[in-house]
């Protein structure tokens, strides 16, 4: 079942998005699966985690479940270490555990650039545990494929142009 989030990442790649995929699992039930949707939505905050969080919120709403209880028992599986923004979002929702593939050297919020998952932030939910290295090579390979396709000499905005 946990291979699914790698399939999500591959789907992102096929759609010209940064290849990151994730699953949100609540008591052995998949409530959310997301991949990056930044280019499609023109919203740079639409990372896989944020997309999956929305699905869990929707599920809670439809089932009339208490979202606080649900998130407190939900594990996030994601191909790449959550970025600083997503790490803060996961804290705000009190998610207890994140299992990720490779580290996120550019934006990582669970130790790579900042340690949002563990820092003392009284007004930003609760700290969470992280387990890194789950099929890390596969995650790195996907990212490499993506960044290889981007021309490093072109302005970023041009490189991101969707054709």
């Amino acid at each position: 079942m946990f291979c699914l989030f790698y399939l999500q990442a591959k789907e992102a790649l096929e759609n010209g998005e940064v290849p990151v995929g994730c699953l949100m699992v609540y008591r052995n039930e998949i409530l959310g699966q997301g991949r990056n949707e930044v280019n499609e939505t023109k919203n740079a905050t639409r990372h896989a985690e944020m997309v999956a969080i929305d699905q869990v919120l929707k599920w809670c709403h439809e089932k009339g479940r208490d979202r606080k209880e649900v998130f407190e028992h939900t594990v996030l599986y994601v191909t790449v270490e959550p970025c600083i923004m997503c790490a803060a979002a996961l804290r705000l929702l009190n998610i207890p555990l994140v299992v990720y593939g490779c580290q996120n050297e550019r934006f990582g919020g669970c130790g790579s650039v900042l340690n949002i998952s563990q820092d003392d932030l009284q007004h930003t939910g609760t700290p969470f545990q992280c387990l890194g290295g789950y099929r890390a090579e596969e995650a790195v390979e996907l990212l490499k494929t993506f960044y290889k396709a981007e021309n490093p000499n072109a302005p970023k905005s041009k490189a991101r142009k969707k054709q």
Partner: peptide, 11 residues
């Protein structure tokens, strides 16, 4: 907050 500040970096 951290989430919003980083969202502004991404944006």
């Amino acid at each position: 907050c951290v989430m919003c500040a980083m969202a502004l970096v991404h944006s």
